[in-house]
């Protein structure tokens, strides 16, 4: 049955490329989560009326975030070639895609983090200050827990975008399902391969969305 529908699909390769995609997505999601939260916290805390209010720093981080968020991903990959070579020492394979994936997604996520933090009731931060909390305590015990549902739903959206980015990265040599669909499927006119790769991408996206939604609603005690 499957043989008939997908005559050209090599299942072992499909599995391997799926794992490559999952690897790229997984690592970049974790790195984006950490980096995005750090950048988002800095954006928030240096913002107007906040604990570390500092206009120059806020503007610099803001500009950095906006620039990297605006560069189309495919161009970003090319722009980052020297940087990538310097740190991972290769231009092919999944590892080579990681710097571009992270640099592309972290600023995007940082903005979402900033927005999530701004949604926190100012009064709660003030209450913590009135109890004599230090800034690190406020970050760990107020800002992050109080915005956690929004942080998780933000990383869910970002993770889904990252699956798309890995497909693009695949085309330029990183491997994965994008690479399979394009090189093996499209360029060799094997529509069934393209189709199978697409279905797997969709399944991954659905699973990410499902897990993200479940965690968000479990965390949200409001």
């Amino acid at each position: 049955m499957l043989e008939k529908l997908f005559p050209n699909v090599d299942w072992a390769i499909l599995l391997q490329e799926t794992l490559t995609t999952l690897y790229m997505t997984g690592i970049s999601v974790v790195a984006t989560f950490i980096l995005g939260i750090i950048l988002g916290l800095l954006l928030f805390l240096t913002g107007k009326g906040n604990i570390w209010e500092n206009r120059p720093v806020h503007l610099i981080i803001g500009a950095f975030v906006n620039i990297f968020r605006s560069i189309p991903f495919i161009i970003l990959i090319v722009l980052l070639i020297p940087f990538t070579k310097a740190i991972v020492d290769t231009m092919i394979g999944p590892k080579a895609a990681l710097p571009a994936l992270i640099v592309g997604a972290a600023p995007f996520y940082a903005r979402m983090v900033e927005i999530a933090l701004r949604e926190i009731d100012k009064g709660v931060i003030e209450a913590a200050r009135s109890m004599g909390a230090r800034v690190t305590t406020i970050i760990w015990k107020v800002l992050i827990p109080e915005s956690l549902p929004a942080l998780v739903s933000g990383i869910t959206v970002t993770a889904i975008a990252l699956v798309g980015y890995t497909a693009m990265a695949g085309v330029v040599g990183a491997g994965g399902l994008g690479n399979l669909a394009y090189l093996d499927g499209f360029q060799r006119s094997r529509n069934d391969v393209t189709f199978a790769a697409t279905v797997v991408v969709l399944i991954i996206v659905f699973i990410i969305q499902f897990i993200g939604d479940a965690i968000t609603s479990k965390l949200d005690k409001r």
Partner: peptide
Amino acid sequence: RKARQEISMIFQHFNLLWS
């Protein structure tokens, strides 16, 4: 911060951590 631990405050909108 030490002084603030001796001067507590309550608020109109309670300002509890919902989490």
